[in-house]
Simulated assay, not measured.
Amino acid sequence: MTVRIGVEEEFHLVQMETGLLAARADAVLDGLPEQTFTTELQQAAVETNSAVHTSLDDLYDDLTGARRTLDTAASAHGLAVVAAGTAPLGFPGDTPPTPGVRYRRMTDEYRRVADEQLICGAHVHVDVPDRDTAVRIMCEVSPWLPVLLALSASSPFWAGADTGYASWRTMLWQRWPTAGPIGCFADAAAYDTAVRSLVGSGVISDPGMIYYDIRPSDHHRTLELRICDSCPRAETVVLVAGLFRALVTEARQRLESPAAPRCRGRHEWLRAATWRAARSGLEGNLVDPETGREAPAAHVVHGLLRRVRPVLTANGDWQTVRSLAERALADGSAARRVRRLAEREVLLACTDLLITETRGAGRLSRRPARRLAGRV
């Protein structure tokens, strides 16, 4: 049976005329259903929550529908919505945090790290049978997560300047004490003990501040992917969701076999591979999880496709995911698209491009990749 998936997307709110961040989340969200649309730490960001789906087509329709609804609400206030790791013209200090005891405590404790939390991510939830399975799967799929980050990379600019990175959001995000690659745990009890220890240390205030690249949900029987930038094109989110579901399913199958793999750890390797993906996106080398050595991004992405093809085929996802992956490699990352535009235009034009891609158009297609021009 095909495993269910759901997605949380974070969006920047920007002024249409200037491209600057706009701290208007409360106004934009007024009247929208709380179960689908909600606030974030900074008032210049909002989050959408999809329903759960088995079909990638249904997930795509859900994501694009939520984007249209949010864009309409923002437009009524002279604002636009940007799905990207960072907004090209987002400047720290220009937006206040969202009111509330928890957010106020975070801004008081973490100071500039919280003040500069002007970043947005795309999170994917995949159903798992129980927390023990979720924790064991984390270790198995973690080496492939930097590849998903490279596919999503959309944040080359920070405070109006080119950082040289494809995902500067990743570098900002990893400043939090419980962000980045996660260690390996024997079972849910060991993981929960580690979380309680972190809360008890006073470094974080609650389990919700576990921000690692992957984590078991506290409220649902899901495993959550957290490494990715928000993606201007909804098709990229669908690609990442399809690949992550396949990785989780493939890992679960291996763990259920008589010769279940033993965790190899490699936390230092994971952090290095994540940095490489954040630096390069799809435009340079990545660290190949199968060899531990650098290789062109296309080679590593194709290796991932080969690994999960049986699961994708069983799910009915192979044609869609293969086509989207090939188009992603042909077009390059969102970071590359906006950076190339910045070579001949001002950064406001980059913001306009991100707004246009976030709005999107059309339906997901399973046609061959050569006919999916401009879709990923």
Rank of each mutant, 00 (worst) to 15 (best):
M1C: 08
G6R: 02
V7L: 05
E8W: 06
E9A: 02
E10S: 06
Q15N: 07
L20Q: 11
L20Y: 15
A27Y: 01
V28I: 11
L29N: 00
E34T: 14
T39V: 12
E40T: 15
L41C: 11
Q42S: 06
E47P: 01
T48Q: 01
N49D: 13
N49H: 09
S50N: 04
S50E: 13
V52W: 11
V52I: 09
T54H: 07
S55H: 01
L56E: 05
D58T: 10
D58P: 02
L59H: 03
D62A: 09
L63Q: 07
G65A: 04
A66C: 12
R67W: 15
R67H: 05
T72D: 11
A76G: 10
H77V: 06
G78I: 12
A80M: 08
A80E: 10
V81Y: 01
V82D: 08
A83F: 01
A84P: 05
G85H: 14
A87H: 08
P88H: 05
G90Q: 12
P92Y: 08
G93M: 04
P96R: 14
T98F: 00
P99K: 00
G100F: 13
R102K: 11
Y110W: 15
R112G: 05
E116T: 15
L118I: 15
A122I: 15
V124R: 02
V126N: 00
V126W: 00
V126M: 01
V126D: 00
R131N: 14
D132T: 12
I137S: 03
M138A: 08
S142R: 04
S142G: 02
W144I: 03
L145M: 02
S154K: 12
S155G: 07
P156D: 05
F157G: 01
F157S: 06
A159M: 03
G164C: 13
T170C: 09
M171S: 06
G180Q: 15
A188R: 04
G200C: 09
G200D: 11
D206M: 08
M209H: 13
Y212H: 14
D213M: 10
I214S: 01
S217E: 15
S217M: 13
R221W: 06
L225M: 12
I227Y: 01
S230V: 05
C231N: 14
C231Y: 04
A234S: 10
A234V: 12
V238N: 00
L239M: 11
G242K: 10
A246E: 00
A246H: 01
L247W: 11
L247P: 04
E250V: 02
R252F: 03
Q253M: 13
L255E: 06
A260H: 03
R264D: 10
A277R: 04
A278E: 07
S280W: 09
L282E: 06
N285K: 03
V287N: 01
D288N: 09
T291S: 04
G292Q: 11
P296G: 06
V300C: 07
G303V: 13
L305H: 09
R307K: 09
P310I: 15
V311A: 04
L312T: 01
T313V: 08
G316V: 07
V321M: 05
S323W: 04
L324R: 02
A325I: 06
E326L: 14
A328S: 12
L329K: 13
L329H: 12
S333T: 12
R336G: 11
R336D: 07
A342P: 03
E343M: 14
R344A: 14
V346E: 15
V346H: 15
L354C: 09
T356G: 01
E357K: 08
R359V: 06
S365H: 09
R366L: 07
G374H: 09
